[in-house]
Design a protein around this nucleic acid. Structure first.
Lengths: 219, 219
DNA sequence: GGAGGACTGGACGATTTCGTCCAGTTTGTG
DNA sequence: CACAAACTGGACGAAATCGTCCAGTCCTCC
């Protein structure tokens, strides 16, 4: 995603040009997270980004194309921030660490209590089927990262062999999304934490044999 | 909500007038659920509703006021459809019935896989603080109905005395919301069912004594 | 049967937003 | 240096949308 390689009809792009382009997308992504997609004006992007309108239309044919790139950036950022952690998941403790970093991340960053992907999905899923499918793919990828971790837990015997990592991952992400929505609406981060706790308990309920766990957790 | 009683400055409203007014709100609510609030035009409302624009502005000073009424109608409908069921909740079985009716309701009604309240919350929470607070109040009321049921389960001994109905309700509603979002985005109702199953399992984990349950569930 | 609310129907102005256009300047690199 | 890409800056047209206005008709209840 960072270097998007030899795309179609990219008429030679300088490092500087690529940087500007990236900055435009980042600015749009930020505004769209705070205000919504429809409520974000191209003139706003131009102003905040401190460029002239011609530049915006130099890099993007229209607003649609910009939105598409915003989605791509959100996917990229999700992978960058989630993959390192989720790839480490091999036990419930790892999963709890993941949850903790999400909760503290929610509190600390100055952004609204929103999921950058979920907010886009909510607004765009009914506007263009292309966007909807892209967002569905992002969710699928996120679930895939989580499901891989759960699979490792299952293969190592921590999870019950009958547990379905894919289904568990879907449920966990759903809790995550709902937690974001309630937290944002009520301006309170507790719903987010409660939702994630529920999700982890749901996973924990599939832990193979709690007693067996005690045998090697006597640290 | 249906009869909104003696509101401020309601200059005598005929039955017919009230009906038209209600029809406008219902039409707007429907369009806004399908397309989003910002994407719904007043001209669209006028067209679908088959009234003239003057009528719309006869009943509502501006779009904001209409949105406010849409929120009120959504709350009313939520209470009408949820309260009867949730007031009956006294056991896990009742809760499962509630879940089942939500799942089948999702499939059967022709609407998108969206929560009418959650979709509004997602779009409006960052636009006006008034709307955000109204929606927060709706969520709170919904959670209250559910929490009341969980309280009855706790008082009757089905739930552990240490269980917190309020927190449980928040988590369940969060799962519900996330389930809606994933279902809509992926155009698949399974995430919704998975999320609700997780939520009910979370409640069930607080059931006091599973063994005692067997004594009177031999039907 | 009369008063007042319900309603038509479309013209209209104001504003916002998208997207175009272009003449000219700056920057960077072969 | 020369060329190409990066960039300015604002004027501009087109379209959509909000909201106003009004002359006149229809309905309904007292």
């Amino acid at each position: 995603m960072t270097d998007r390689g030899p795309r179609k009809e990219s008429p030679r792009l300088t490092a500087r040009g690529a940087a500007t382009r990236e900055r435009i997308v980042a600015t749009a992504a930020d505004l769209m997270l705070r205000q919504g997609v429809a409520a974000t004006t191209l003139d706003q992007v131009v102003d905040v980004c401190a460029i002239s309108k011609s530049q915006l239309y130099h890099y993007f044919p229209d607003k649609e194309a910009l939105i598409t790139q915003v989605i791509a950036m959100r996917e990229h950022r999700m992978v960058v921030s989630q993959k390192p952690q989720l790839d480490q998941v091999r036990s419930m403790r790892d999963l709890e660490r993941w949850r903790d970093s999400l909760v503290t991340g929610l509190r600390e960053r100055g952004e609204p209590y929103k999921c950058p992907i979920g907010a886009l999905a909510n607004e765009l899923s009914c506007r263009s089927d292309d966007s909807r499918q892209s967002l569905a793919a992002v969710f699928a990828r996120w679930q895939g990262l989580l499901a891989a971790g759960l699979s490792r837990m299952r293969d190592s015997g921590e999870l019950d062999p009958g547990a379905d990592p894919g289904e568990l991952a879907v449920a966990v992400i759903a809790a995550l999304q709902g937690g974001y929505l309630l937290a944002e609406t009520m301006q309170d981060d507790r719903p987010f934490a409660l939702a994630l706790d529920m999700a982890l308990n749901h996973v924990k309920a599939q832990v193979r044999d709690p007693a067996a766990d005690l045998t090697h957790s006597a640290d």
